[in-house]
Design a binder for these strands. Structure first.
Lengths: 230, 230
DNA sequence: AGCTTCAATATGTCTATACATATTAAGGGG
DNA sequence: CCCCTTAATATGTATAGACATATTGAAGCT
């Protein structure tokens, strides 16, 4: 147990037992350093950890305050299809469905402001069973190479990550009833629920790609465990 | 732009343009410090930032390596109902449905290994319209005070957070078809989809509470934007 | 009152140095 | 050949001092 860790634990105790109640402004770093008998840097290390965990908020000149959290702000990571499938012991498979077909996409094209687009629809399989349907638009102005790629062996997801760095991501999670294309490709009946992940990535204000990932609700769940401090 | 920030940007550039490809082991901190003409602490600050963002992995003695990410590992934060509702300009409302009624709960009681339980079911409303149904089990061994609380004015969520510190959280997100209780209380027809959040919290290996939050799929979406570094 | 200016202040960053410690790689014995 | 010991090494932590900078709150002006 390093000094900064035991200091953090003690601070956690004070927050939990309301010695430092929500909204309370804690002493200055220098005073804390004196109280705990360590250097200011060590105090900062402990405070940084609590700050990352969202338990305190720090502002220059204003000081450090205990966050008033009536609920928790847990963060979770969205798995990558291939990893998700392999983690369950399944055999990952990929199948291209169509490229640039006139078929209507559930995605919103207006985000790209008229830029030339590539439209790819493909399927991620687990043990040859449909697992996730991917419907994607790619901005050819921002990623010109995508015009020459057939995507018949590599998924646009993996292709893009290797080629196009992104600087901004927007992710949305929803529950929906299966669209027609979900029913067709995921083998679902009308009225079945699907878990939908929609994601848009940009690079320096230029929209790169927009994707809708739909999953069979009976086989898909996003799970995260966060064994916090303490 | 502080030194550590511009150093981080330069490192990002090298990762993106494959000067530092996936799997690559970067130079030691001391060498980097010499190259960039700063102290080792400044290099560490930049590396810590990249490490948090999940772009590099660091291990003692082994060095620092660029993570091989075929996809992205975006992290998102789950909103708190009340905040979610108020953020949309709605008026938050709370209504208790029942406590300790024999009614079957969709939750798994076996997690608590026979401990005495409190069962609470309640509703979170937006402008008097049902928004989220909460179904919760509380371990009375771990939180004895919960036996005396009626929960008729305060939601168990807020009550618990103020009283019982947690050290571990497990969260699951799913799409489901509305159960009977979802239909009854959220005003849904049979066959409607719901977005379900299930969460279990523990404190030092003792299970504290388990909750199922179901939301009308047509009104609920979890969204996060991460405007990362760069 | 309302507005601007300005100094006080707590956090943020940087440097330089020393020591701690996990982990790997090499060496030595069975 | 395998297991154990041991030393080398890159990251992790701690210290102490200096300076930077965002914000606040008060003083002064209109």
């Amino acid at each position: 147990m390093h000094p900064y860790e035991s200091i953090r634990t003690e601070m956690l105790r004070r927050i939990n037992d309301q010695s430092w109640p929500a909204g309370f402004t804690l002493p200055r770093e220098e005073d804390l350093a004196e109280e705990f008998g360590v250097a200011r840097g060590t105090i900062r290390r402990a405070l940084a950890s609590l700050s990352e965990a969202g338990l305190i908020e720090r502002k220059r000149r204003a000081g450090t305050r205990v966050v008033d959290r009536r609920g928790h702000r847990s963060t979770l990571t969205i798995p990558i299809v291939r990893h998700e499938i392999e983690a369950r012991g399944g055999q990952y498979g990929y199948r291209l469905i169509c490229v640039d077909e006139a078929a209507a996409s559930p995605l919103d094209k207006t985000l790209f402001e008229g830029a030339p687009l590539r439209h790819v629809r493909c399927l991620h399989l687990s043990d040859d069973k449909p697992f996730q349907l991917e419907d994607r638009l790619i901005n050819l102005d921002a990623v010109p190479d995508a015009a020459d790629e057939t995507f018949d062996t590599i998924s646009p997801n993996e292709w893009l990550v290797q080629r196009a760095p992104y600087s901004f991501i927007r992710t949305g999670l929803r529950a929906e009833l299966a669209h027609q294309i979900d029913q067709d490709h995921l083998g679902l009946k009308a009225g079945a629920p699907v878990f939908v992940i929609e994601r848009q990535t940009r690079f320096r204000d230029a929209p790169l790609t927009s994707v809708r990932l739909s999953n069979r609700a009976d086989e898909f769940e996003i799970v995260t465990e966060s064994g916090d401090l303490l």
